[in-house]
Structure formats: structure tokens, C-alpha cells
Amino acid sequence: MLAFLLRRLAVALSVVLTVSVIAFLLLHLSGDLATDLAGPEASPEQVARVRVEYGLDQPLVVQYGHWLAGAVQFDFGRSFYFRESVASLLGDRIPITLKLGAIALGLALLVAIPLGALAAVKRGSWFDRGALAFCALGQAVPTFWLGLSLIIVFAVNLRWLPVSGNATWSHYVLPSVALGWYAIPAVMRLTRNGMLDVMASDYIRTARAKGLRPHTVIFKHALRNAVVPVVALAAVQFGFMLGGSIVVEAVFSLQGLGQLAWEAIARKDFPVVQAIVMLLATIYILLTFLADLLNAWLDPRIRVA
């Protein structure tokens, strides 16, 4: 088990390093940062001064080494635009996006797994067909439209929930629904297919031959085996939600990572963009690792590997 963990850690570190190099190169190849930073009105002298001030005159390898030396000490430099350290800037935004993503994922799983399981058990029924239709519809609805519709119905007309902001937990309800909505069809379909496979398996027949009640057969014996592939999907979806919450954050005026990434990219705020890319890559890797651990717990056969 220890060898397994160490191996996983080594792979994870090399992935993070690779991502950092690629992100670094792409950002520096996207144009002359000094010209952008100095502004359109700047004279060549001013541009040159900016170039030296930000260390952009040095070779890329040196710049990258400099950045890496800071990054390993959690020092990601200062934002070009916000005049604040990148670390504290991210520190303010991360909790908002994590909260949003976690609630959205929780909602999505809470809806999708039972729906998928029921659809499989009642295969071919009106419920199953309705669930599949709901899936198709769910994927066809754009996030921004759903977000705005939710605001109109629940915030403006019914006045049940706040329109925007992040002051209380109730502020997170509508954005979480809008963000989680997109994950529901994929999770539901995977759960349904997994359940269909598992329900046809020999050990489910054994469970029924023991006289177990249907709910025990379905929830104890079938669902646990059916959700193994769902865990990996949920981890990936969570990654998507954190990285892709930008539309939802814009619609609901949540000052999260998505908004920050959008602003930083628009302003060529290189240290912030680089830090966000690194953060998301690290979160992805952590999530897949957690998913592996969870699967090992769900399916004892995986523990051997």
C-alpha cells in the first residue's frame, strides 16, 4: 500500500510540473507581456523599464526557475493588476468556488444516483423513459440560460432566494443548481447502465434467492457495485465544476475563482493565471486520487492492485 501511495505521489508531482511548464510557455508565447503591461500609450523606454522591472528580460528558463522557486514555498508572486499577493488573492476566492462546487456536486449526486438506480430497476417503464428524456433535456439547456431562468422564477418572482452575491448559504442554492444541473445527466446515465449490468449479475440472483427484500437487494447488493464507475466520473465532474464555474459565477455575481480567472486572463495578469492553472491541476490530481481510494473501499478487489 505504501509503495502504491509513493508511486501515485511521484506521478502526481510530475504531472503538476509538466502542467506548470506548459502553462508557463503558453502564457509567454501569447504575446509580449511587457508591451501589454505598460499600456498602449507607453513609450519604448517605458516598455523597456517595465520589462526589466518584472524580470521579463531574462531567459525563459531563468524566469521559470524563479517562479518555481517561489511556488514550492507557496509564493506565487504579486498580481500585476490587483497589487496584492497572488496567494492572498486566491485565498479569498477559493472558499467561494469550493463551496459552490461541493454543493453543486452534492445536489447532482443526490438527484442523479437515485434517479439512475430507479430508472434501471424500472427499466422500460414510463419512469425510465421520463428520466432519459430529462437527461437529454438537461444536457441541451445552456448554463447561463438556466441560471437566468432560476433567478427570474425563484429570486425575482417568488422571492424565495437571493438574486446574487455570497453573503449566506441561501445565496449558494440557485448557483449550485445551475452548476450541478450539467453533471446530472452523465452521472444518471452511468448509474443506470451500471445498475442494469449489476442487476443481471449472478450475485443479485443469489441475494434474491436468500429471500432478501427488494430494497436490500437494490440498495445494499446492487447500488454499491454500480456506483464504482460513478465515483471516477464524479471526481472529473467536480474538477470541471471548479474550473468551469466561470459562467455561473458571472451570472450570480459570485467572486470566486472563475471570475478571477476571467479577469486575470483579460488583463494578462500572468502570475494569477499561472497560479490558478496550477491550483486546478493540483485539485484534479487530488480528486482522482481520492476517487481511487473511495473505489478501493467500495470494491475490495481493487485493493490488491
Binding site: D202, T206, H221, R224, P300
Partner: peptide, 11 residues
């Protein structure tokens, strides 16, 4: 049942 390899729940 016939298939002892698959008739027990792996979980």
C-alpha cells in the same frame, strides 16, 4: 448456483 465465481457479491 452453478457459478461460484460470480454468485457471491464481491463487495
Amino acid at each position: 448456483f452453478q457459478e461460484p465465481m460470480t454468485s457471491l457479491n464481491p463487495a
